[in-house]
Design a protein around this nucleic acid. Structure first.
Length: 641
DNA sequence: GTTTCGGTTCTTTTT
DNA sequence: GAACCGAAAC
């Protein structure tokens, strides 16, 4: 392979970096992924055993893309390399070594929906459920932040609830209770996976030595998005050989709300004094005009690593600014432009509309449907968190973890006349445990169930018992299939108006399970996958359609034409973010991410009013981010204002 | 005492 | 949509 020819000077330097810590500052569109993939190929060509390379990413998509590309580039020469998200690696190591820190390896992973439910029940149990007490979601974010940043909860809580009359003592008490309940249920949430993985490395010399020895080279993607725990863990993972290469862009740090701290990135050279730093600034993606807008936008932020995107492409069109009357007019504008682009030969799949929050896309979705333009939304609801998908997996979860109270109650509450109270009573009666694989447990349960539920349970019971009898522990799909046939299929029809659609989801879920060697592997994966990944799995055929996406979900992607809508004060930047410390800068970085997704054409849209449900209107100023861009860089277009 | 149903309100971003 | 609340139904 001729590395010199296939890479530019900047990339080549990073790819062929000598051993030791290195920091790659990769601005948007400068071939960050390419550099990482070639780095892997380079290492393998130098004779490094792929088995001793670790590649960490934040998203499943990034992990898959890099593994695929590295595989193609080296003609399969990287097989054995360990690559995946932080959470995946954590789960993998914990399943193997959890005993070292006093846990079983049969824990269940809570997704955010489960965590919310458990938190709610904790609030009820402590009788903190008054109107002014924070919502489960808020508390989970706070506790997650405390865990990920390794900061004391009381300090964080005090700042977080500064202006609210909330008893911090209760907030602390609740966290202890939540922790206790998680242990009882034998479950871990996302934050726990990272926390305990770190703890495993800190406390078990055996584990630490084992993996420090193994991982001769550690590569981390999007390092600016690491939190304290992750940075600490990476530090330990690479602790022996110290061949740590981190790649990222502080301008694109957009996850501080979940604990990401780009100071890990900024202070990397301080932490590792012999760091070699590489900068990638040559942008292959966008026209010079778009990069001018991007560079101007980020100027408003306090100085970080200095860098300027340098264009190599020719101009095509000026970026446009459209000030519109309302959301409907904005939708008409976007559609008119899409039609124009299509006439000139742009494929719909090369067009994206980006926005700050999912609900900003509502009018546009209606209008696109009306205009019969196909579109795909990267939806807010994840495939694996939809009610029917979770319902279908309750049986599996119970089989794998008899203490999984959430799964047990979820299953029972599907029965007629059986609500939360009754489900709880039965759970208590069974001694907070249901050994689904043992016939005695079923006898005990049947005695406790209300008469109306007994006959239904008798239908489901064989599904549970088949697990051992027919050795189905390696066939999660079969369990789901039988549960569906025995009970859930019918329940679906009685419960949901779009049962057919949901049944199709379940069919693809069953197909999806085929790739897993065990029920436990499948359940872990379910919790760690997002809908985007599921989409790619279940609908591989790339449909032609305009992409609608949040900016967060668009990170790392690119399109020929990009629209950014609802660029208004209070919406983008979102008013809730601006209230937080550093919120405004983060929103600006988010805007920077949006701009740098565009290859040829960029359309910025700002309506003047938003209609409410009751017919009233709210006026919105155009976003400060638009005002910060020198007017000569944008051409006014469309609209009447 | 519980469950169920219908209406209302509100949507930040994700592993 | 889905989470919450209050009232009707069991």
């Amino acid at each position: 392979m001729n590395f010199r020819e296939e890479l530019n000077d900047e990339q080549y330097a990073a790819v062929t970096a000598p051993d030791g810590p290195s920091l790659v500052i990769a601005a948007a569109g400068t071939g960050k992924t390419r550099t990482l993939v070639y780095r892997v190929a380079w290492l393998v060509e130098q004779g490094v055993d792929p088995n001793r390379i670790l590649l960490l990413t934040f998203t499943n998509k990034a992990a898959r893309e890099m593994l695929d590309r590295a595989h193609d580039l080296t003609g399969g020469g990287v097989s054995g390399m360990l690559g995946g998200t932080f959470h995946h690696l954590a789960n993998r190591l914990l399943r193997q070594h959890a005993r070292e820190i006093g846990f079983g390896n049969d824990y269940t992973i809570l997704d955010s929906d489960d965590a919310k439910k458990l938190m709610k029940s904790c609030i009820d149990e402590l009788e903190l459920d008054d109107k002014h007490f924070p919502k489960p979601q808020v508390l989970l974010s706070l506790y997650g932040l405390a865990s990920g940043s390794q900061k004391p909860l009381d300090d964080l809580a005090y700042t977080w609830f500064e202006d609210a009359p909330i008893d911090i003592g209760n907030v602390l008490k609740l966290r202890d209770h939540y922790e206790k309940r998680k242990k009882e249920l034998n479950v871990m949430d996302f934050d726990d996976l990272l926390l305990y993985a770190l703890k495993l490395f800190q406390t078990s010399e055996y584990v630490r030595n084992l993996y420090q020895e193994r991982f001769q080279y550690v590569l981390v993607d999007e390092y600016q998005d690491t939190n304290t725990i992750q940075a600490e863990w990476v530090h330990l993972l690479a602790g022996k050989h110290k061949n740590l290469m981190v790649v990222g862009d502080d301008f694109q740090s957009i996850y501080s709300w979940r604990g990401a701290d780009y100071h890990n990135f900024l202070s990397f050279p301080k932490r590792y004094p012999d760091t070699r730093t590489y900068k990638l600034e040559v942008n292959y993606r966008s026209t010079p005009e778009i990069l001018d807008v991007a560079n101007a936008c980020i100027k408003g932020n306090p100085l970080q690593f200095q860098k300027e995107l340098r264009a190599v492409r020719e101009s095509i069109a000026e970026p446009k600014l459209a000030l519109l009357r309302d959301g409907d007019e904005q939708a008409r504008y976007v559609i008119a432009k899409i039609e124009e682009l299509k006439r000139k030969g742009t494929k719909l799949s090369d067009i994206a509309v980006l926005y700050r929050s999912h609900f900003h896309a509502m009018e546009l979705q209606l209008a696109l449907t009306h205009a019969r333009f196909p579109y795909q939304v990267t939806s807010g609801i994840r495939f694996f968190e939809q009610a029917h998908v979770k319902d279908a997996c309750t049986v599996l979860r119970l089989l794998e973890n008899p203490a999984d109270e959430l799964a047990f109650k979820r299953l029972l509450e599907m029965f007629p006349k059986l609500g939360p109270k009754t489900a709880d009573k039965i759970w208590q009666k069974l001694g907070k445990r249901f050994e689904a694989r043992k016939p005695e447990a079923h006898q005990q349960l049947l005695a406790a169930l209300p008469a109306s539920a007994v006959s239904i349970w008798k239908e489901i019971q064989p599904v549970f018992l088949a697990y051992d009898a027919e050795s189905l522990s390696e066939d999660p799909g079969e369990i789901i299939y039988r549960f569906n046939k025995a009970f859930y299929g019918e329940y679906l029809i009685e419960t949901f108006d779009n049962a057919k659609h949901r049944q199709e989801d379940l069919d693809s879920l069953i197909d999806f399970t085929a790739r897993f060697e065990s029920c436990s592997a499948f359940l872990s994966e379910m919790a760690l996958l997002t809908n985007l990944d599921a989409e790619a799995e279940t609908a591989p055929a790339a449909l032609d359609g305009v992409r609608l996406s949040t900016v967060h979900q668009a990170k790392g992607l690119e399109w020929k034409a990009v629209f950014v809508i609802w660029l208004n004060e209070g919406l983008f930047p979102s008013s809730k973010s601006v209230e937080q410390v550093g919120g405004e800068s983060e929103e600006r970085r988010l805007f920077y991410v949006a701009i740098t997704r565009a290859e040829d054409q960029l359309f910025l849209c700002a309506p003047q009013v938003r209609r409410k449900h009751d017919g009233g209107v709210i006026f919105y100023e155009p976003s400060q981010f638009i005002r910060e861009i020198p007017p000569h860089l944008l051409k006014q277009d469309g609209g009447f204002f």
